[in-house]
Design a protein around this nucleic acid. Structure first.
Lengths: 200, 200
DNA sequence: GTCTATAGTCCGATAGAC
DNA sequence: GTCTATCGGACTATAGAC
């Protein structure tokens, strides 16, 4: 292929990198951080351990990269979409989050597994998940949600996001089901209809 | 010691065994199945790997024993308590579950970590968690819960147990908080008060 | 950027002495 | 029932050739 004078786009490099990150998402989801080995990831992407380490530095480096570069951006987009809406609608926000997650089961799988593993303060992603939880709630509380007058918005947000974590676990365990539908049933219970008429 | 004709109470044995199981609960919680090593458990209980293996047979054997012998009995007790009640009250049932879990954080920690890890069909506890989910819902649906007329009881149970999984994760990440109180806020959202007056 | 080779550690499990 | 010793294998990471 050397006769092609295409400017050596460095595609090999970025391709390898994203291949590694994709394989890492799957492995962190299926086996967690401790159960993941660079050897397996290397096999998946057709490299050696040393080749993988060249790109990510270390196993912890791989974890950091995957969380910062792959998982984070999606969630931030959602929040920013709602920051400038007038009459911001909690139910719709949750539906949008669910719709996005329904299309990225591997990432949700990774999130769920690492989230539980990282309860332990010694886990390398413990701080990441702690701060993420905290920041999410703080940012959500600053939005002037349009809700029934009696609503305790803090409690509602905590309850709703907790329910979403749980329903996503159940969905991942039975992937033939439709996450959007499962959440629709949850929504109907969390924000029942006579009371939430006109608010969702 | 052969001169003692005490009936060889085998207390050393049961002590070692329960010590091993307790250490396993903690380790499976903090590091998951893959992250747990028999060596560490042996160190914790003051034995060698070989000594531990004598009691549990294999690492998978240890996992099975812990789930069947330590975790399961608690949950079964709760369900049976409610099977014979008249006017069974869902809200009270959930409060009792939460009250029990609030007093056994290590076991809840183990449950949460293994539950997420076991999403993967290749995990040694995958079938255990799949069947547990299924059985729990089936048994709960057979109970004639006393609820407002409009309630979709299947959806309510799914939503409630999902919310409980999520809130327990948050509690474990911030253990200074009170799980019972956290759940009380969730209950108020899931079964809001004008509608659930007299039902909880 | 990817490789081979290697260092050094830890793993689960077994055999057999006491 | 607990130990020592040991097997065979997997792991992260580094050094250095190409």
């Amino acid at each position: 292929m050397l006769h092609l004078n295409r400017p050596k786009k460095r595609d090999n490099s970025t391709d390898s990198r994203t291949a590694i990150l994709n394989a890492a998402v799957v492995s962190f989801g299926e086996r967690g951080y401790y159960g993941t080995s660079l050897q397996k990831i290397a096999n998946t992407v057709g490299m050696t351990k040393a080749g993988v380490l060249h790109h990510v530095g270390s196993k912890e480096g791989l974890l950091d990269i995957v969380l910062d570069e792959v998982y984070d951006p999606c969630t931030e987009t959602i929040i920013n979409n709602f920051r400038m809406t007038d009459r911001p609608n909690v139910a719709r926000m949750w539906r949008e989050v669910v719709a996005i997650n329904a299309k990225r089961p591997e990432q949700v799988h990774m999130f769920s597994t690492l989230d539980a593993e990282a309860i332990d303060p010694k886990h390398p992603a413990h701080e990441y998940f702690r701060k993420r939880d905290q920041n999410l709630l703080e940012e959500m509380l600053q939005i002037p949600w349009y809700v029934p007058g009696s609503t305790n918005i803090g409690a509602l947000l905590q309850a709703g996001f907790s329910m979403m974590d749980g329903i996503q676990l159940r969905w991942l365990r039975a992937p033939e089901r439709d996450l959007n539908q499962m959440w629709a049933e949850c929504e109907a219970e969390l924000m029942p209809m006579p009371m939430w008429e006109g608010y969702r």
